[in-house]
Computed example of a mutant assay.
Amino acid sequence: MKLRSAYLASALAAATVIAAPASAQQSDRVTLSSMGGHVMGNPLAKHKLTEYMSYTCNHCAAFEAESHQQLKTNFINKNHVSFEIRNLILNPIDLTAAMLARCGGRTRFFGNHHALLAQQSTWLKKFQSVSPEAMATMNDGTVPERLRKIARASGLDELMKGRGYTAPQIDACLSDKVEQDKILAMTKHATVTLKLTGTPSFTLGGKPLAKVHSWGALQPKLAVLPQ
Rank of each mutant, 00 (worst) to 15 (best):
I93A: 15
A97Y: 00
I18H: 02
E51I: 09
L32R: 10
G37P: 02
R86P: 05
S23H: 05
M99Q: 06
H59T: 09
L88C: 01
L32I: 07
S67M: 11
L100P: 01
M99I: 00
I89V: 11
A19G: 11
I76R: 07
H38P: 08
H80S: 03
Y55T: 03
I89N: 00
S33K: 06
P92W: 04
V39L: 14
L95P: 03
K78E: 13
N79K: 14
V81N: 09
V17G: 01
T96F: 01
L44M: 04
H47V: 01
N42F: 04
P92E: 13
N91C: 02
D28W: 06
A22C: 04
H59W: 07
A45S: 13
N87Y: 14
Y55K: 09
M40V: 08
Q26D: 12
P43H: 07
R29I: 11
A97C: 02
N77M: 15
K72C: 04
H47K: 00
H59F: 12
A22Y: 08
S23E: 02
A20P: 08
T96Y: 02
A20D: 12
R29N: 05
C57Q: 10
N87Q: 15
C57S: 13
Y52A: 08
A24D: 14
I93N: 08
G37K: 03
R86S: 10
P43E: 11
M35Q: 12
D94S: 00
M53E: 06
F75Y: 14
N77H: 13
Y52V: 14
S34R: 08
E84M: 05
N91Y: 03
M99C: 00
V39T: 13
S23V: 02
V81T: 09
Q25E: 03
V30D: 02
K46F: 03
C60N: 11
A24R: 12
S33N: 08
R86F: 03
E66A: 14
S54F: 03
T31D: 10
I93C: 07
L88F: 01
A62G: 12
A61G: 08
S27W: 04
I85A: 10
N74T: 04
E64V: 07
S34M: 05
I89G: 01
H68Y: 09
I18N: 01
Q69S: 07
T96E: 01
E51H: 11
N87H: 14
H59S: 13
K46D: 12
C57W: 15
S67V: 05
I89H: 01
K48D: 11
L44V: 07
K46C: 13
D28H: 05
G36F: 07
I18Q: 03
C57P: 07
I18C: 00
M53I: 06
S27F: 05
Y52H: 10
E84I: 09
P43R: 14
N58I: 04
L95Q: 10
S82W: 15
T31S: 10
L88T: 01
N87A: 15
N79R: 15
P43G: 04
R86C: 09
S67Y: 03
